[in-house]
Design a protein around this nucleic acid. Structure first.
Lengths: 160, 160
DNA sequence: TTGCGATTGAGTCTCAATCTCATTGATTGG
DNA sequence: CCAATCAATGAGATTGAGACTCAATCGCAA
């Protein structure tokens, strides 16, 4: 009944057409090696000469999320980041100085989740852990970092 | 040079006047026993007959944050929650069914932070951990919960 | 080629949060 | 007591992320 003689959408994603826009987005997310946000994705698409509307971008991201192709993280100030779904669960550290996001894994997370399930009777379905601070490289440079810390203790933050 | 003979602002918060609006907000946040957002704060202020503008509300929250009087959390979909600063660091679980937010403490967190500092050379200054799932009460009711879980495994998410 | 269902883009809308700017009001020096 | 000052406020405009709307388009089977 359904002979696949498609020309363009030869490939599908779990039943959904792999359109050029979706292909582009998946490619961009993949190339980003993790942690890219909607705005940046949009920019990179534009820079590549391929236009895509913001609506499609957001729709596609939500679709990918539903299909478990990507992970969405809320890092920092509510801004959502996306990355290709990883086989192994991992968490993030965010450097306040350079803004970079790093991955890390720890089996303490599992222990923690077990502990909460046991002691609170809370059935955990998703874990969001984000450690903010200062990465090794920035600590070595150490110039802006110290300043920030000193400012923080005395005064208001300098403009970040 | 600066004789304090103030009539109204007898009290100050680290140099900042304790105005009626700020007093009200601190009171409301305190009474909320944790995890209240800006909108809800605004509503409660209105309901109490005391008017306050949204601008002042947000300004005050930012001030309190700077002065380390309150903690700000990004729970769930980007909406910010506030609570009076706790002496003991704690983390949150959020029930997806009833929406309630619970606190928990675990010394595994400290271990985890130590691990990251040691292995990544990352200097952690703040920890955000949020476990989403289903609380004990909702699990006991178990009617909507099971449905959600079954839907999740088979199909796309039902509309949440 | 026609009709369907899925997909897209442009623009609109919503909502949280911030910014602007004129006004208020407490404080202080004269 | 008055004028100057400066922090704080309120009303409303603005911003930005993200969702929504709707007409147009596209792939595809008949």
């Amino acid at each position: 009944m359904r002979l696949r003689l498609n020309r363009k959408y030869l490939k599908t994603i779990q039943g959904h057409s792999l359109t050029s826009q979706r292909h582009l987005l998946l490619e961009l997310i993949g190339e980003a090696h993790g942690h890219i946000d909607a705005k940046e994705l949009y920019q990179r698409a534009i820079n590549r000469g391929e236009s895509i509307s913001l609506a499609t971008l957001y729709r596609s991201l939500n679709l990918f999320k539903q299909l478990d192709l990507i992970d969405e993280h809320h890092i920092g100030r509510g801004c959502r980041c996306y990355e290709i779904k990883q086989a192994i669960e991992h968490q993030h550290t965010v450097c306040k100085c350079c803004g970079k996001v790093f991955d890390f894994k720890s089996n303490l997370i599992r222990k923690l989740v077990d502990e909460v399930q046991r002691e609170q009777g809370f059935d955990v379905s998703s874990v969001t852990l984000c450690l903010e601070g200062c990465c090794e490289q920035c600590r070595k440079k150490a110039i802006p970092v110290k300043k920030l810390i000193e400012n923080k203790e005395g005064n208001n933050h300098a403009n970040l």
